[in-house]
């Protein structure tokens, strides 16, 4: 299967380890992974802040770049939702010619593993106590359900602990975290309390953005809980175990 990685602008720039983990994981599972170098951003930040014109141009760019693959895999529920749920309306209504082009289905990572590859055990090893935060867009826009949890439960050595109030937003919300920083922080405070109450060493999620938020708060508190993307847990093996970034 010829798979294109859409790494997301955020992971590309700030969390390259997440992108590397996806590549290693998918190659280990026998996929032929390509990274179209022309990719930049899906336009979600612009779109959600009200800059539709910019968002439409970026959506159009994106669509052209990812045509011709069997599947596109994104390590982000939010960006996958932007591409799958929002782009058709944006590209369709302003650029009729593009609407008909063959587009590869876009999958969030856990969807790709469970739905497209039919796997829950990806042969991972991660000997840590972990709690999982289901990000809002994975949960409500993509409806990934328990796919990430099924993947995590199959990881050897991993102790999965339930996160209280898991389905509550962490308060990130893109520019919301800046424009309404105080409310965002109040939401984050409750999320961090729930994370810390689990006694987990690692909080994981399918979105670098929400993890950047939760992790940024935990780091400020010196809470001793590491934010680790789901891809990095699934890429970790006994031979090449995950190690915290230097």
């Amino acid at each position: 299967m010829r798979v294109a990685l859409f790494v997301t602008c955020l992971a590309d720039t700030f969390f390259p380890g997440t992108g590397r983990a996806v590549v290693e994981l998918l190659e280990r599972l026998g996929c032929d992974v390509d990274f179209p170098m022309a990719q930049t951003c899906c336009g979600q930040l612009h779109g959600n802040t009200g800059y539709r014109q910019h968002a439409v141009s970026l959506a159009r760019r994106h669509k052209g770049i990812f045509a011709g693959y069997d599947a596109v895999v994104v390590p982000s529920g939010s960006c996958a939702a932007q591409v799958r749920e929002m782009h058709p309306g944006m590209v369709g209504d302003t650029h009729g010619a593009m609407a008909g082009a063959m587009v590869a289905p876009t999958y969030e990572l856990s969807e790709f593993l469970v739905d497209a590859l039919g796997l829950t055990d990806v042969g991972a090893y991660f000997p840590h106590r972990v709690t999982y935060h289901p990000t809002c867009h994975s949960l409500r826009l993509l409806q990934v359900g328990d796919k990430p949890l099924r993947l995590l439960r199959a990881v050897r050595g991993l102790e999965l602990v339930d996160l209280p109030g898991a389905e509550e937003c962490c308060g990130f919300g893109g520019t919301f975290a800046i424009k309404n920083a105080e409310v965002s922080t109040a939401m984050l405070a409750d999320k961090m309390r729930c994370v810390q109450d689990t006694g987990a060493e690692v909080v994981t999620a399918g979105d670098s953005s929400c993890l950047m938020h939760i992790g940024g708060g935990l780091s400020r508190l010196r809470a001793g809980v590491a934010p680790v993307h789901l891809a990095e847990i699934l890429a970790s093996t006994e031979e090449a175990p995950w190690a915290p970034a230097a």
């Binding site: 790494v7 992971a11 590309d12 720039t13 700030f14 969390f15 390259p16 992108g19 590397r20 990274f35 170098m37 975290a177 800046i178 424009k179 920083a181 922080t185 984050l188 950047m212 938020h213 992790g215 940024g216 708060g217 780091s219 400020r220």
Partner: peptide, 17 residues
Amino acid sequence: KWTAARDAPAPAREPFR
């Protein structure tokens, strides 16, 4: 407004691409 309550990541020395 972000760093008032949260640390921020620095851009990676070697981006993914």
